[in-house]
């Protein structure tokens, strides 16, 4: 049951460091099972490379169940591969056919420089979060949780925005490498809740300012980010953030 019968040709981006030039390198892989995950296929390839004393392909991955947001491959031109609503680690080889050629590249954006091979530096996201992705409430100061009733629909919408895993597929997909969907998801999560209203003005202004500073591009409303987002974060969030941003600036 472990051996499969798919033979594939992989074209994988290899780049030793951010300072050096990279290129696509071709690797054949054999006997791939359709039940393998895409990353397990990479494991097989890497084991082969180690056995030949070559250096394995470096790629980010961790939970392998679609929630940590670490994995980040552009597969045949699409962030997280050909299926929608999943991360790279949730992609299985049954989505491909025997004989296929598969091209794998890293996220490409000025604000996500390549570290090595398929691994990029996403700390720009961290710096945006540190500018306002929170409610300023110290540990121990909270009132009883049910003293603050919140309409179920608002809580659910907030949850849907908060489901963002911070993978960066939205940026990798956007032709402008814009981070609007990512930032909007966080702004929306708080904008939809009473807890978030108090700091709403500063939050949206500071997060957007940092986003611009990091070199992410502008949003031109193509909606590609929403399609490739593995968690289905809606474009509505961008509209909501724009509204928040406008209101915040009117208050000045």
């Amino acid at each position: 049951m472990s051996h499969g019968n798919m033979n594939l040709t992989l074209k994988i981006w290899r780049q030793n460091s951010g300072k050096e030039k990279g290129q696509l390198v071709t690797y054949p892989v054999k006997d791939i099972s359709p039940d393998m995950s895409f990353l397990e296929m990479f494991d097989v390839l890497n084991e082969q490379l180690v056995s030949k004393n070559e250096s394995p392909i470096v790629f980010d991955h961790d939970c392998r169940e679609g929630i940590c947001g670490m994995c980040s491959m552009v597969i045949n031109g699409r962030a997280h591969g050909p299926k929608t609503g999943i991360t790279t680690c949730q992609l299985h080889m049954r989505s491909f056919k025997d004989g296929d050629t598969i091209t794998v590249e890293p996220w490409r954006a000025q604000a996500f420089p390549v570290i090595k091979d398929l691994t990029v530096d996403r700390t720009s996201f961290e710096r945006i979060q540190a500018k306002g992705g929170f409610v300023s409430v110290n540990t121990g100061t909270a009132q009883d949780a049910n003293c603050l009733p919140i309409p179920k629909d608002d809580a659910d919408s907030s949850f849907n925005a908060a489901a963002c895993i911070g993978c960066g597929a939205c940026v990798a997909t956007c032709k402008n490498a814009s981070a609007m969907l990512f930032v909007a998801a966080k702004v929306s999560q708080f904008a939809l809740l009473p807890q978030g209203k108090i700091e709403a003005t500063a939050r949206v202004k500071n997060m957007v300012a940092q986003m611009d500073l990091e070199g992410f591009g502008s949003c031109t409303n193509t909606g590609a980010c929403e399609i490739e987002c593995p968690k289905g974060i809606s474009l509505e969030n961008i509209a909501r953030m724009n509204r928040e941003y406008l209101v915040a600036n009117c208050k000045d």
Binding site: F134, V135, V137, T139, G140, T141, A142, Q143, D144, A145, L148, I150, P151, K152, A155, D156, S158, F159, A162, Q189, F190, L193, Q195, G196
Partner: peptide, 12 residues
């Protein structure tokens, strides 16, 4: 209490 105050959207 703490998580709700932080804006964690728990089910309602």
């Amino acid at each position: 209490d703490q998580c709700v105050a932080q804006g964690v959207p728990l089910a309602r």
